[in-house]
Write a protein that binds this DNA or RNA. Structure first.
Lengths: 335, 335
DNA sequence: CTGAAAGCGCTTACAG
DNA sequence: CTGAAAGCGCTTACAG
């Protein structure tokens, strides 16, 4: 006999399997003496408790949520906002005794199958492109789905700040008195091709969060021109090159779509001897711990709390989705 | 009918359940026309494929590994070495189409049950204390277990560098010409009480990695005295206070047990106007990307590769455990 | 190329 | 306080 099963313990013990089951699940229902004997035999046989998979099948409940990250997984451990978000998810998992299943996807064919075949009770999708096939899969599974940031799709609940409104307000702060405004944007789509564009059309942008922020910026700017640099990813050092290209055009104010990207602008400004905010105003998003230290003007939002909210949704909480809070935090990097 | 099952599809299609099963698992065995009809009916009914839990039970295989982290989970996303390790684990998971289950433990009573009831095929335990009850649980489950760093226990395979040998060699580099050597150590146990001790006994140390490094340092020092500062955790800013206490004693060389802790020493040295290495030599462990930038002398090891190795073990790979490689990388912070 | 049947290991509503 | 039985949804070796 390899691993002993509940039936083995029951047989050896002279009781029914259900009595053994109750010993683990509702010990109070079992006579103390019986319980003692069962535990003894279990120990003797090396039985360590009910098989989790069989239990999940029977109970129709896995005790785990799946978190879909549209990136190589190292990303989840590198990107500061993603980390804060996941920390929030993890906190709820702990409170609820739930498991946390990480499901990285990269746009490969097997993504969909890997997402579908995870034994989880609900899904959290980290913000992705409008047409991500993973969205269709998770919606059709009859399990709760929470999406951080967007896109908004039927059968899923979105946890996000109002990106457009926050962009509008931040633009007002960052571009005050600016003659040559510029934007350092997240990638527009999964291509992640870095580039410089003049007032790109919002329809070009496949990531809804990025699109909404661009729209908010346009709301503020009206019809005026604006240079938009597109970073390959949310990475301070990797953005250095595109930031250099942007600063070569001589902007006097740059709205970056994250603190990390804003730091990349501050780094480059320092290298060039530009004064901030006198020569160039800079702002970001997220208000991570580093933003305060750097005196960065930024949109504060709690990715941690959004992680918590997503986890609660994925675990089946019904209540209304509360719109995540944000606040423009004005510090020293803007005029 | 809530979610349709395989049997529903079969019935509606006029075939047996096993034919439907084959359509998903070995499509070639099914006649093209039958396959087409099954897919059609499945789509019509909203059947999205075999239930993962039922499949796991039947196949006796979950397609997932559990990673036990003896910390609040935010840690996994904050600690640089842990992140590199997990990135390595994640890479193997991707290659093998396996799931990745994060199981944070904090020493609470329910730890053991949460670990036991994860539906996984194997476990990875991130280095922990000798007496962690989780070790006994995972060993008794009849599933492969890999432990990063240690402790070494029966029924589990350890993936680690030779910490004692690396400490011996690093001590030789760091303490060359030193009259007042000191150590900035990881915590000794789960208490994580920061403190200053003079040559603490190795038996005091419940974390085997920390103990082995201390032993290696003593190997080099012989019977001489050495001051050991114990940090609460592997965190650059959090260590500032204990580092200050250490520097107040005027050491001329500090071996820190990680790059992060070494940076904490460099930070404090800079604040005090101490020259490195002239006034105080500093070294660390891990050789993360930041170490090279800082010119830090450190023990290079690939936590990423160790993550890969642990994942392969947890997935059932048999081959001999290769001892992880390390190399003392001497740069500018030592004499 | 397709099917009948057994069984993965458990839990639960119901009876006694 | 304990048990007989059904069933969670699937896969597989075997037969035809």
């Amino acid at each position: 006999m390899s691993r002993p099963t509940m039936a083995d313990v029951a047989r050896r013990c002279g009781v029914s399997a259900m009595t053994v089951s109750y010993c683990y699940n509702q010990p109070d229902r079992v006579a103390p003496e019986t319980r003692r004997r069962v535990r003894e035999v279990a120990a003797e046989l090396g039985y360590r408790g009910p098989d989790p998979t069989a239990r999940s099948l029977r109970r129709r409940h896995n005790g785990a949520i799946g978190v879909v990250l549209g990136e190589h997984l190292a990303y989840a451990f590198e990107d500061p906002p993603a980390r804060r978000f996941l920390a929030g998810v993890a906190q709820v998992c702990r409170e609820r005794g739930s498991g946390l299943n990480l499901i990285p996807t990269t746009g490969a064919d097997d993504d969909v199958e890997r997402v579908r075949s995870a034994s989880v009770d609900g899904y959290i999708v980290w913000t992705t492109v409008d047409t991500d096939p993973v969205l269709d899969v998770v919606r059709g599974l009859g399990k709760p789905v929470a999406i951080q940031g967007g896109p908004a799709v039927d059968g899923a609940r979105v946890v996000s700040i109002d990106n457009r409104a926050s962009a509008r307000e931040l633009a007002a702060r960052t571009f005050a008195g600016s003659a040559r405004p510029a934007v350092l944007s997240f990638p527009f789509d999964r291509d992640r091709r870095p580039r410089l564009e003049t007032r790109p059309a919002p329809e070009e942008v496949a990531f809804p969060v990025t699109r909404a922020r661009l729209l908010g910026i346009y709301d503020h700017l009206g019809p005026s021109e604006v240079l938009v640099a597109v970073a390959a990813r949310n990475d301070r050092s990797e953005a250095a090159e595109i930031v250099d290209a942007l600063l070569d055009t001589g902007p006097d104010a740059v709205m970056a779509m994250s603190d990390q990207l804003a730091f990349a602008v501050l780094d480059a400004a320092r290298r060039r001897g530009l004064r901030v905010p006198e020569d160039v105003a800079v702002s970001g998003w997220d208000d991570g711990p580093a933003a305060e230290r750097a005196g960065l003007t930024t949109v504060a939002q709690s990715l941690f709390d959004q992680g918590r909210d997503c986890a609660l949704i994925a675990l089946g909480d019904r209540g209304p989705v509360r719109v995540a809070e944000w606040k423009a935090t004005v510090r020293a990097t803007t005029r």
